[in-house]
Design a binder for these strands. Structure first.
Lengths: 336, 336
DNA sequence: CGTTTGTGCGAAGTCGTTTTAGCTAACAAT
DNA sequence: ATTGTTAGCTAAAACGACTTCGCACAAACG
């Protein structure tokens, strides 16, 4: 495998000259045209490709970004990853992908791994309810940015959806169609993202003078299981909800599974809106209304922010990307 | 950021001693217990983490695997990626993720990038119909393995589903329920994977003494668009098919979209089976029968094969992982 | 003719790690 | 008193690239 040294030896010139030429600094280093062309030609011939590892060691910049997500098989994160890779590769950065598998311990270990691998920056969708193990990264001066989930009481910047507004809007859609008993099936309440989505729901009800009912706020994890069981429970109340708001795609899937298993019809038996869109939701019968997160944009913005910080511009601001309501057939208009 | 050199300096010992101790070679290098403990303690204190870039340069092994897929947002590849990451990280390998975006030019460029990054091995689901640009990798002695799509006329090993059998089985399920006019909507025919799935379909019909009808073999790409248009076309034939076999998940999605748009009912108007499973297909009304690929297993096997080759065991054999028929409600039993 | 200026390139250090090949001091054996 | 052994370390090279100096030679200038 050809190296600078090898080329230099073969052509009987010095390594520095070869290096300069291959970095396009021939002119400014006053290398003669003859030498330049001969080196370029020879490099082409032997198929020289620079050793980015050596370059990284020397420059202490690896052109590598660490990306850690809780579950790359979740289309929400997969879409985000696709866009992160896309925007990063445009700037010659490559992505080191880590799947933390919703496991905080894995997350802690892989944080160290990324530091060891000298990534230039880290983008992570954290899984836990604390961020102590990330402060290590910040101390090492490695740029870090959160996506999706975040911690407002840390100084680590984040790019996420406008969870409050998305939730607020979702509830408003239901309210606009006469629903007042709206069940919220949510994730772990220690999570700030959950808190904001919950607050959006609560404020939406309050602003419409609808009583916020504790028995309709259920669930404790972003899982199919939770959506499934919570739905079964809540539909058995004496006074069941007329609509369900599922706080993410996994919960939403659980709701759909439960409704199907109970042999009920959406939206006749119960209306539904899900936070997170998914292509298949438009094919269901009925098609399902959603709060669509702009995961493409989140990915793009995360890359731009991290590159900004890598380039020593520390003027990073956290962002909330607007969501979009996609109305389909799953919301019934109640008779007034 | 602490380095071996820094630790050595701080403790007034040599770099080599520190290196040995931190690599657990204290005993065999007859380092005194006192020195060992003091180094370990100090390293812990300053939070030393080895520079894997430097290590990689020295050892010319980066503990990195390049993974290139056509579309990480496609759940089939995302699931595969999840498992590849999982099995790789167990052996301390990290994944460099590349999304070729179904683009051969990107693929060519990124192949060079991976070589420059000195990955220890490359796993790729190729997008094109030729593999010339991959021979470069092989020449550089970088272990390479294909997943999903492949080229039987190259010596590059591959791990894929048993496409022929899966297709054969799918057609048999339809035939067993009385279908004889079965439409196959397929991908680009230059692709070997497509050829095998097609052959499975053809042989399945022939072995059941059913005429193979050219007008029922349509489509030319793995895309929603293709599934959508082909479905519309084929359902307008004078003698339309009673069943459709979609060759992958994107095509299948297009079929569902078309059927919905035409206001038709599955399986009354037409029966359907899709190559590739997806969680949501069980929630559709009716639920959709599929040929499930074991993408978890494919990912696992790909990692095991590439690690084998990295460890100089070149006895790699290509594999075809069995598929599984998942019968749901989308296939109608025709009256005989 | 001596000095300056410009041209074209090379030597060597550096990044952080591993590893080979020793080196020194202490002690035992002869 | 000399030699041998062993414990406990160190020095230095190497991996491949970049970069700071600076050197040699030629031409131009005064």
């Amino acid at each position: 495998m050809p190296t600078l040294k090898q080329i230099a030896k073969d052509l009987n010139i010095s390594v520095s000259t070869v290096s300069r030429i291959l970095n396009g600094k021939g002119k400014e280093s006053r290398i003669s045209d003859a030498t330049v062309t001969s080196v370029l030609k020879y490099a082409q011939e032997v198929g020289y490709s620079p050793n980015l590892i050596a370059k990284g060691l020397q420059a202490s910049q690896t052109f590598t970004i660490g990306l850690m997500v809780p579950d790359i098989a979740n289309p929400f994160f997969a879409t985000m990853a696709k866009n992160i890779e896309k925007w990063a590769s445009r700037e010659q950065y490559s992505i080191i992908l880590i799947d933390s598998d919703e496991n905080v311990e894995t997350e802690k270990i892989q944080v160290l791994n990324m530091i060891s691998r000298k990534v230039d920056g880290i983008i992570v969708a954290p899984v836990g309810d604390s961020f102590q193990h990330f402060t290590k990264i910040v101390k090492q001066k490695v740029p870090l940015i959160f996506i999706d989930r975040y911690f407002t009481n840390s100084t680590i910047p984040y790019i996420t959806s406008d969870n409050y507004q998305g939730s607020y809007d979702a509830a408003q859609e239901l309210i606009a169609r006469g629903h007042t008993r709206i069940c919220l099936i949510s994730g772990s309440s220690a999570n700030e993202l959950v808190q904001e989505r919950t607050q959006g729901y609560i404020d939406s009800l309050k602003n419409s003078d609808i009583e916020v009912c504790e028995e309709l706020m259920v669930g404790n994890s972003f899982s199919i299981q939770n959506g499934f069981e919570s739905t079964k429970n809540v539909l058995q109340l004496k006074n069941p909800p007329t609509a369900i708001f599922a706080m993410n795609n996994l919960i939403g899937f659980g709701v759909l599974k439960a409704v199907k298993e109970l042999g009920l019809k959406i939206p006749q038996a119960v209306s539904l809106i899900i936070f997170d869109n998914h292509p298949y939701l438009s094919l269901l019968n009925p098609s399902i209304s959603t709060v669509k997160q702009n995961s493409e944009k989140i990915g793009e913005m995360a890359v731009k922010a991290i590159l900004k910080e890598i380039n020593q511009d520390f003027d990073i601001t956290s962002m909330r990307i607007p969501t979009e309501i996609i109305l389909r057939e799953s919301i019934r208009k109640l008779p007034s």
